[in-house]
Design a binder for these strands. Sequence first.
DNA 1: TATATTTAAGATAAAACACTCTTAAATATT
DNA 2: AATATTTAAGAGTGTTTTATCTTAAATATA
Lengths: 160, 160
Amino acid sequence: MGGFAMYLCRQKTLKMRVISRLGEYGLRALMYMAAHKSDTGYFNIRVMSQELDISFHFLTKILQGLTQRGLLQSYRGPNGGIGFLVPPDQITLATVVKALEGDDFFQNCLLGLPGCGERQPCPMHVFWTALRESLQTEFETTTLDDLGTQTLERHLRLKA
Amino acid sequence: MGGFAMYLCRQKTLKMRVISRLGEYGLRALMYMAAHKSDTGYFNIRVMSQELDISFHFLTKILQGLTQRGLLQSYRGPNGGIGFLVPPDQITLATVVKALEGDDFFQNCLLGLPGCGERQPCPMHVFWTALRESLQTEFETTTLDDLGTQTLERHLRLKA
DNA sequence: TATATTTAAGATAAAACACTCTTAAATATT
DNA sequence: AATATTTAAGAGTGTTTTATCTTAAATATA
Ligand code: FES
Ligand code: FES
């Protein structure tokens, strides 16, 4: 495991979990798939689970979910696997995250109060919604394909 | 329960949980205390738990933690309660959140990968750290006392 | 057809998180 | 001193999240 896949190994504990494991694993797997082109168009889930150090069955379930939502397609049997149904340059991070975490992902109050934006806003509302919209915009304008190249550009810019 | 306390009732489900229940309840309780001055300097936890619709024992435990960390002081017995040890205009949101969620609260990778900022950054790193720093800066420069007035100002600005 | 491979689906288990309960300690009031 | 009130502390319970296990279905190969 090297190069782009280096981004994709596991940790034990974490704080400020903006994205759940579902979202993390799903995103990492899709990033992996977008970065590693496949001859057949299909990726073996077990291999991926080993490369990414994610539980095979758990990853299977997550990808299964993305298949059911029409982002991926699967093929059973030898040399089967999972592949993009929608091409990765047309899948935004927002689409992935909403598919895995729920459509209301970008609508929550920082303090966990109900009806953010509908009822009277909490004291953090103005600040939080601005930040949240930045996050949402970035997620909506970044595709899976973008990630590798964007990162490369940023690295260059950082080192310059 | 009205006015400022209106911000402070409970919901059932939530997504994108930036702050855990611990942090949410702790922040809401401290916001309540900062907004409602007390004659004795102490607030009854049971009353607070009812006003905020938070489990009494759970809230007790959370405030207990903040007492142990030197932010609050408690007084047992009749007319006892919990009060600020550090005045609320000197307690930043960052202090509260770090006390409740851990000191590494503002240091986590968006994708949950280990060693954000130490190892080679993940594809979201540059974008995420910028956003995360905004959040951190806001939390570090906003005190509990600020919240009420800031909110008021913002409401006025919004309606103007 | 028989066998191996691979994902699908559902049940089960473990871990983390969010409470809840009980008892103890401190304080005030009587 | 006795009693009521209030927080402290720790054990216990329930729920959600995360992970695992088992069996089924689909496909390829021999
Ligand atoms: S109501 Fe809290 S962030 Fe919108
Ligand atoms: S390494 Fe992922 S956000 Fe820093």
